[in-house]
Write a protein that binds this DNA or RNA. Structure first.
Lengths: 132, 132
DNA sequence: GGCTGCGCTAACTTTTGGTTAGCGCAATCT
DNA sequence: AGATTGCGCTAACCAAAAGTTAGCGCAGCC
C-alpha cells in the first residue's frame, strides 16, 4: 500500500490479508473481536451510551479496559466520541456508519454462538468425559 | 440448562447472554474471536489441514498457541481432530458442521474488516494528526 | 456538609501469551 | 552411511497484556 512492503506474497490481488503477520487489518480485527471490543460494539449497536452506562452494560469490564478499548475503536473510526466539558463530564459514545456495519456482522456471530451454546456445552461434556 | 444456575438475572427469556460476566457463551466467543481462534477457523474453512500446514497458513502463530487454540476449539465442538499414531505423527484438523457455521459468520466479519481497511487507516491518520 | 457519581489516568499485580528447547523416529539429502 | 530436516506436540521460562486499586476535582443529592 504505502511504499515498501512485501507482506502479501502470493496474494497480490488482495490488498489486505489478515493471515499475514504484519498486515494492519489484523490489528483492527483484534480491536473488533477482542475481549471487550466486541461487547462494546454490540452494546452500542442499540444506541448511543455514556461511558458508565456502557460499563454497566458490559458486565465485568474495568474502567481502564473500557476506556482503552473505546479509544482504539475511535481511532479506527468505528466509534464516535462526543465529550462535553461540563462538570461532571458527560461523554457519549456512538457507532459510526462503518462501526454499524462491523457491529452487524459481529452480532450475527455473537447471536449464533449464543444460540449454539447447548451444542457447545454438550460437546464439552463429551470431550471431558472421553479424556478423563 | 443443566440444573443449578442463577446467571441470567433479568434476562430470563434468553438462555445465554454474552453480556453477563459469568455466562459460558462469553468463553466460547473468546475462543472463536481470540487472536488465533478466528484465524484458525478461517483457514480451516477452505478444507482440512495438518497441524504444520495450518501453522504456515496462520502467519506468526507459535506451536504452543496453535495447539492450545485447537484444543479449545475441539473441546467446544467446532473442530474435529484426527490423529494417526504413525511416525512421524499425522494430525488432521477439520471443521465440524457447527464450526463451519461459526466460521462463515466469522469470515463475513473478517472480509468486511479487510475491505474497510482503507477507511480505517484514513480514520487513524485523522485521529493521530488531530491529537498531535 | 458529607457522600456519591462522573470519566478518566497512573502505579502496581496477576494472568496470559510468546519464545526456546527438546522429544523419538522416518524420510531425505550428501 | 551419516547427517539433517520435519512431524506434533509439551515443559520451562520470560515478556506483554489485562485486571486492580487509588485518586482526580467538582456538582448535585441527602
Amino acid at each position: 500500500m504505502t511504499t515498501t512492503e512485501g507482506l502479501t506474497e502470493g496474494l497480490e490481488d488482495l490488498p489486505f490479508n489478515v493471515f499475514a503477520k504484519a498486515c494492519p487489518s489484523r490489528g483492527t480485527l483484534e480491536h473488533v473481536t477482542g475481549r471487550w471490543g466486541g461487547l462494546a460494539l454490540g452494546a452500542l449497536y442499540e444506541g448511543s451510551l455514556r461511558f458508565n452506562e456502557l460499563r454497566r452494560r458490559v458486565d465485568g469490564v474495568s474502567e481502564k479496559m473500557l476506556s482503552q478499548t473505546l479509544h482504539a475503536l475511535e481511532r479506527d473510526g468505528l466509534v464516535h466520541r462526543e465529550a462535553q466539558p461540563t462538570n461532571p463530564p458527560r461523554v457519549d459514545y456512538e457507532l459510526t456508519p462503518l462501526g454499524r456495519d462491523v457491529a452487524e456482522r459481529l452480532l450475527a456471530l455473537i447471536h449464533f454462538v449464543e444460540g449454539s451454546m447447548e451444542q457447545v456445552l454438550a460437546a464439552r461434556e463429551r470431550y471431558d468425559s472421553a479424556k478423563a
